[in-house]
Amino acid sequence: MSARGVAVRVGLGRGWTEFRQRALDVGGLVGELWPWVIGAFALHALSGRTMGDTALDVGLQGIPGLLAVSVVYTGLLGLSLALVTDQSDGTLLRMKAVPNGTIGYLVGTVLGRAVLCVETALILLVLSAWLFEDVQVGRVVTWLFLPGVLVLGLLAILPLGVVVGAAFRSRASLGLVTLPVMGLLAISGVFYPLASLPRFLQWVGELFPVYWLGLGLRWALLPSQAVLAEVDGSWRHLEMVGVLGAWAVVGLVAAPVMLRRMARREPGSTVRPDAAGQG
């Protein structure tokens, strides 16, 4: 096996070890999960009302959106935060000192995030199925489509997390990203139908992967009549796969470039106060 192949395999082991460490850390797990649990209960409190002229429950309709938001938070913001933290606490530098360590680090970190995203989604799904009897977890098609949509969504979103994490050096500056992402969530139709937004905001929302991930999740999880609340009354499968796929391609091309930039970056004074600025 080539040296890089070895590093990829070691990276898989790294992701697994870090996953185990996290699974045993109850406090950390609660910290990752509480927003989604509260969100699910909040949606449950909203249920009982129907949306517009459809028979669709307002709370139920929000569940796939919540799932999409959790993927964006964990996969994009969480991953970029992890990368920035590892740059400043010396983790990345230590991996750089090992042959092909950067590869192993990345494989481990991105894989760890992907697993966390899936784990969060599963827990949220189980909770939703318990709260809302109309979440379609009993259908065969759900279990055929849901993994596909999730994987495509992760492929579109995780590389973005890498790009963002590699572009910033400090947690403080990462705040610059959080705000636009919040804005993006607001126009991505995750909690209320995109069709109810002004036309130009719809177009902006449709440019980004969040809306399409949410759409795919609604398609996989909601009763089929929910399609009536969507733009054009259609699940728009072709566009869904097209836009998510395009973001995945762009991200997978951009991520390694940004990473090489990050890996070449010199150690900062945050790690080693003795290193810079002193003469």
Binding site: D86, G90, R94, A97, V98, P99, V271, R272
Partner: peptide, 18 residues
């Protein structure tokens, strides 16, 4: 390159990682 990197040992000053 990485082959060179494999012949060089580095003891870092950081203490917060891993």
């Amino acid at each position: 390159d990485e082959a060179w990197r494999a012949r060089v040992g580095v003891v870092l000053q950081s203490w917060r990682d891993h």
